[in-house]
């Protein structure tokens, strides 16, 4: 049961070694930097040190309680990340599949709209626009 914010890459295989060993069901999701049809070379991710760690830990604890998780892990990167690099991952462990899937979706919906991260596009000519929040991310959160 842990949340981490880091600039370094992470290894999903290493993160999952021993994770949820007695659970029965483990779900992982990982988000990667998209090129947006070749328009981008990287994303820059800014965050709010201190608040970010507190928020991610609170989301994990809430998910654990709601979905009766036996374990959970959130890793989210910041800094400049090239196309194809992993941005973040969530892993959830529960007795049964549905709870593990639902908890992973729940964590993703909270991460998208309530964790203090901001993405900026970087293209061949350098830094571009800040990524705008999407209304459907807010809608996704409302279902919980």
């Amino acid at each position: 049961m842990s949340a981490r914010v880091q600039s370094e890459p992470f290894d999903i295989g290493a993160e999952l070694r021993g994770f949820g060993a007695d659970a029965g069901a483990v779900v992982t999701f990982s988000g990667l930097v998209r090129s947006e049809d070749g328009r981008l070379t990287a994303l820059e991710i800014e965050h709010y040190p201190g608040m970010t760690e507190k928020a991610l830990t609170a989301f994990g604890a809430a998910a654990a309680q709601r979905f009766d998780l036996t374990d959970w892990r959130i890793v989210h990167r910041h800094g400049i990340l090239s196309v194809g690099e992993p941005i973040m991952m969530v892993a959830t462990a529960a007795r049964h599949r549905k709870a593990a899937f639902d908890a992973a979706e729940y964590l993703m919906d909270w991460l998208k709209s309530r964790a203090p991260f901001w993405k900026r596009e970087i293209g061949p000519d350098g830094p571009g626009e800040w990524v705008a929040a999407r209304p459907d991310d807010e809608d996704a959160l409302a279902r919980w």
Binding site: H76, S113, R114, F117
Partner: peptide, 26 residues
């Protein structure tokens, strides 16, 4: 003080107020 709130929240004895655009994590 690192907790999300809204415009009409009382400031109280706040030490830290952060202002930012809608978040785009994940």
């Amino acid at each position: 003080d690192q907790e999300l709130t809204d415009l009409d929240a009382p400031l109280g004895h706040a030490r830290e107020v952060a202002l930012f655009p809608p978040m785009t994590g994940g």
